[in-house]
Design a protein around this nucleic acid. Structure first.
Length: 376
DNA sequence: AACAATCTCAACCGCTGCCGC
DNA sequence: CGCGGCAGCGGTTGAGATTGT
């Protein structure tokens, strides 16, 4: 907006960083902290603009960056959070310790987006592509409302997190101070613990969510539709669905088993993912479109029982069920909600439950990350 | 072996929001 | 309240790597 870019100065280098430049930047920050990024290049003897230095540090040189292939759990976290938050990479990075927003963004654009597309899922809406035709106006409006609430809530949480973190980072140790300042400027490390002793706040959207599902499932006795979430300071009830799904989303940062069942990471995981998800999803998509694959596969109880076991299948179920259901039901976030599921004209409780599971898992993920921040 | 097509990801660009004056 | 400086964010680019023909 009229302001000249910081790199306009003649003589400032652009493009790939050399090892010598990296070394200079690293040495300077290790000794002094980054301080003002604008002033840093001069002090560090670099012919770069401050912005370039900041980017190089936050995306590459920072010691707390985990590089290499994404684990399957990280992929799942990204997909689920993307469904909730959209292209808000820094917010997503908050929940992926040691990964930068840039890395996540790149990974999404080059891998996950294509993969979802290949699976027939719109990577933007996270719904099956052919599903959009079936979307009624009122339904999409309600879903949009819920999505909007989710975004608003996540933004609020981020702001809260930032405030608390800033206050906590005022430590006296110069090294910690330096690291703290780095972290506070790092987009990937905004995740923080709640203030000690303070109750963790649940997402407001959970309340709306619970109201929706609670009204529908009051007689189910699952514990999800009750007043668990009515208090603004309450935590999510660890009953019912939440309990059964809590094993799914363990953060890589603190989960030593963040790998395939056999402990392998990387390519083998990727192969397994691709192998399984496409089978699973093709079945699910068929099922979603009303083409029965195998009725027993859609047994409601089996679908809900997602603890341990084959979490890939469950995940893809979640992914799909979310994709499939959000277009097909009325999500009234008003008091007198009437959750109606219509799947090709047929009410189907299975999709209700799976959609609930899907969102519950996402929200669990967000909340659990606030309760148990990864160690840096 | 040579070339083209495609993929990957580090880095850049421009906009936005925050903060101090 | 308005302005300007700054850091952060998300979209985009393009050079290098990889794969296909």
């Amino acid at each position: 907006m009229g302001r000249s870019p910081c790199c306009d100065k003649v003589g400032l280098k652009k493009g790939p960083w050399t090892p010598e430049e990296d070394q200079k930047l690293l040495a300077y920050i290790e000794e002094h902290g980054h301080g003002s990024w604008r002033a840093l290049p001069t002090k560090a003897g670099l012919q770069r603009c401050g912005k370039s230095c900041r980017l190089r540090w936050t995306n590459y040189l920072r010691p707390d960056i985990k590089r290499g292939k994404f684990t399957i759990q990280e992929e799942q976290t990204i997909i689920q959070l993307h469904a909730l938050l959209g292209n808000r990479w820094s917010a997503i990075a908050t929940h992926l310790p040691k990964r930068t927003d840039n890395e996540i963004k790149n990974y999404w654009n080059t891998h996950l987006k294509k993969r979802l597309t290949k699976m027939g899922i719109d990577p933007i809406s996270h719904k099956p592509k052919n599903d959009t035709l079936l979307c009624g106006d009122g339904q999409s409006k309600n879903v949009a409302n819920l999505s909007h609430m989710a975004q608003w809530e996540s933004a609020r949480l981020e702001a809260e997190a930032r405030l608390v973190k800033q206050s906590r980072l005022r430590c006296t140790n110069p090294i910690e101070k330096m690291v703290g300042s780095v972290e506070s400027s790092s987009s990937s490390n905004k995740l923080l613990a709640p203030v000690s002793g303070a109750p963790t706040r649940c997402l407001d959207i959970l309340k709306a969510w619970n109201r929706v599902w609670g009204n529908k499932n009051n007689d189910a006795g699952g514990g999800n539709g009750n007043g668990d979430l009515e208090s603004p300071t309450s935590t999510i009830s660890t009953t019912g669905v939440r309990e059964s799904s809590s094993n799914f989303f363990e953060f890589v940062g603190r989960n030593s088993s963040g790998s395939c069942d056999d402990g392998n990471m990387g390519e083998e995981c990727d192969e397994e993912w691709e192998h399984k998800d496409e089978n699973q999803l093709s079945n699910s998509i068929l099922g979603f479109n009303g083409i029965s694959t195998n009725d027993q596969n859609y047994d409601n109880n089996n679908r809900q029982n997602m603890s341990g076991g084959n979490f890939l299948e469950s995940f893809t179920d979640l992914l799909l069920s979310s994709s499939g259901t959000s277009n097909h039901r009325n999500l009234e976030v008003s008091g007198e909600s009437n959750v109606v599921l219509e799947l090709n004209g047929v009410n189907n409780g299975y999709y209700d439950d799976n959609n609930k599971n899907y969102w519950n898992n996402i929200l669990d993920l967000v909340n659990s990350s606030l309760q148990d921040p990864p160690l840096f």
